Simulated assay, not measured.
Amino acid sequence: MQIVFADLQDSIVALSGTNSPATIRRSSGVLGQVTQTLNIPFTVSVAPRPGGPGVIAELPDASAFVRDGPCCWDDQPWCAAIAAHARRTLVICGVTSEIVVLHTALDALAAGYDVIVPVDASGGLSERTENAALRQIEKAGGTVTSVAGLVTGMVRDFTTPTGRNVITALHHLAG
């Protein structure tokens, strides 16, 4: 498994009409903490913005891949980074669900990857349009879930040191 943080930039997260920016930040931050606790590879893909990427502070530190279009798969260096990890499951989150999440998920599915979209770490333009995008992803074979559902499927024992770190991270979802 690897995590794809897409367009989680201050100026773009603020545009979400479905999840509040605070929810997206918290949920993405929890995913970021879990990547570090479980040594899960991740990438950060961003849209070009005046003044630089402006990635939200809740994400783990990483160099961002700046792409020209609405889909991460259109960026060859990003594709090479994904392929280098040789992990066939991508967890894709970002803003907006109808653009970067949708197109990246559909292209990943077409390329033979399994795709999971945690809805609380993503945001859409409107409920109607986001729901349409999520239905498209599911119809193509992707899974739509939550950060809590995803993470508790990976770590089932919260009494171990790793499990305690994960459950502590999950408590941040409550705000």
Results as ranks from 00 to 15, higher is better:
Gly51Asp: 04
Val66Glu: 07
Glu58Thr: 07
Ala121His: 10
Cys71Val: 11
Val119Ala: 03
His85Met: 13
Arg87Leu: 12
Ile24Asp: 03
Ala62Glu: 05
Val100Glu: 09
Thr145Cys: 11
Thr96His: 09
Ser45Lys: 14
Gly52Val: 03
Gly52Ser: 01
Ala62Gly: 11
Gly112Ile: 01
Glu130His: 02
Val46Gly: 07
Tyr113Asn: 05
Ala111Ile: 06
Ile82Val: 14
Pro41Ala: 00
Arg135Tyr: 06
Ser146Met: 12
Pro77Arg: 00
Gln136Lys: 15
Gly69Ser: 13
Gly51Trp: 08
Thr43Asp: 09
Ile82His: 06
Gln36Asn: 12
Ser45Arg: 15
Val44Asp: 04
Pro60Asn: 02
Ala64Asn: 07
Leu59Gly: 01
Pro70Lys: 10
Val115Met: 09
Lys139Trp: 14
Val55Lys: 06
Ala22Cys: 10
Cys72Arg: 12
Arg49Gln: 15
Val55Pro: 03
Ile99Tyr: 06
Thr23Ile: 09
Gly123Trp: 00
Ile56Asp: 03
Thr37Cys: 09
Gly52Thr: 05
Glu98Tyr: 00
Asp75Val: 08
Thr35Met: 05
Gln36Leu: 11
Glu138Ala: 11
Ala57Gln: 10
Ser63Leu: 12
Gly112Arg: 03
Ser20Arg: 07
Met154Glu: 07
Tyr113Met: 04
Ala64Cys: 10
Gln36Tyr: 09
Lys139Cys: 14
Ile92Lys: 01
Pro41Glu: 00
Leu134Thr: 03
Val46Arg: 05
Leu31Glu: 04
Ala108Leu: 04
Ala148Asp: 14
Ala57Lys: 13
Ser20Ile: 03
Leu59Gln: 03
Thr143Phe: 15
Thr143Gly: 13
Ala133Arg: 00
His103Ile: 11
Met154Pro: 04
Glu138Gln: 12
His85Phe: 10
Leu90Ala: 05
Thr143Gln: 14
Gly123Ala: 05
Ser126Lys: 00
Pro77Gln: 02
Gln33Met: 14
Ile82Leu: 14
Pro77Cys: 03
Cys93Asp: 10
Asn131Cys: 12
Asp107Cys: 14
Ser97Arg: 07
Gly69Lys: 15
Pro50Gln: 15
Ser146Lys: 10
Gly123Glu: 01
Arg128Lys: 11
Val147Glu: 03
Asn39Met: 10
Val91Lys: 07
Gln76Cys: 09
Ala22Thr: 13
Ala64Ile: 06
Ser63His: 11
Val91Asp: 04
Thr89Val: 06
Ala62Gln: 07
Ala105Thr: 08
Arg88Lys: 09
Ala121Arg: 10
Glu130Trp: 00
Thr96Arg: 10
Ala132Ser: 11
Ala83Arg: 15
Asp75Pro: 07
Ile82Ala: 04
Lys139Asn: 12
Cys79Trp: 08
Tyr113Ala: 07
Ala110Cys: 11
Cys71Gly: 14
Thr143Cys: 13
Gly52Asn: 01
Pro70Ile: 14
Leu102Ile: 01
Ala57Arg: 12
Ala148Val: 11
Pro41Leu: 02
Ala81Tyr: 01
Ser97Thr: 13
Leu90Cys: 05
Ser146Gly: 13
Ala62Thr: 02
Val151Cys: 05
Val147Ser: 00
Pro60Ala: 02
Val91Met: 08
Val115Tyr: 09
Ile82Phe: 04
Gly149Lys: 14
Ala80Met: 12
